[in-house]
Amino acid sequence: MSLVENGAPGADALLDEVYGARPPAPRVGITGPPGAGKSTLVAEMALLLRRQGRRLGVIAVDPTSPYTGGAILGDRVRMSELSTDPGVFIRSMATRGSLGGLAARTEELCELLSAWGSDLTLIETVGVGQSELDVAQAADTTVVVLTPESGDAIQSLKAGLMEIADIFVVNKADHAGADQLAAGIRSALGLRAPAAWRPPIVKTIATERQGIEELNEAIEKHRAHLGDPGVSEGLRREKIRARLKNAVRERLLEGAWERKGLGALLDRAADQVLHGTISPYRAARDLIERMTDHGERSPN
């Protein structure tokens, strides 16, 4: 897995081999603001699905520190009960400088989990900024988790969550303000153009195992909706197109700085910009040229 995550030599060959070996496991993305209780929700969904005999992959994504490049991936803390279950494969990932909130190689790890035998893959990630869009792209079904406490929840509804959610979860539904939140979501949904799929709102109290069954059912319903050839073909092509773009971008950039001694060139360009010799845009164009140049000249 690390080979694939690191984009190491041989990783793509491995992926080619496993692709299509088993039917791809449906992917469910779970996103929402920090503190919404996503890990607990995922743990409870997984426990329930396990009781129904399904094999599960779980990918939990946490942000990489932009300053140090390191990350603390703590989602397993909430998934202790699953941690010795051979029917669950949990993998923690750091975003590693990818632009959105999702790790660059999430897609690829999903493929590996399908090959391992996952019947369903849950992808959990903190929804901040751009990341919701990434999740929606990677997942077949996107679940947006909000709580009465996520004060700016309504704000984020405006900021794009509305478009990507296939299912809304109002978690901590026993806390004050849950009904208002649900009403807020409902009215925001009302503003949307009528569509074949109307995102349901599921109330849960993940810490008390309430509403989990309803959530899993809503996901099943969305799966069935996607399975309808009338709706799915265009939608699926759209997703595949986006995933391909993503894969191309990753492969273009990954390791490029190291591969052709571009790191040293970058340092030199930075010096030049610093001393006002060239403009940053000029430097960027030069670097791109070198990146796409297939010659293997040394930087000097």
Binding site: S39, T40, I72, G74, V77, S80
Partner: peptide, 10 residues
């Protein structure tokens, strides 16, 4: 009453 699961806090 169930078993407690701590939040991961750093």
């Amino acid at each position: 009453y169930g078993v407690y699961r701590e939040p991961a806090v750093f």
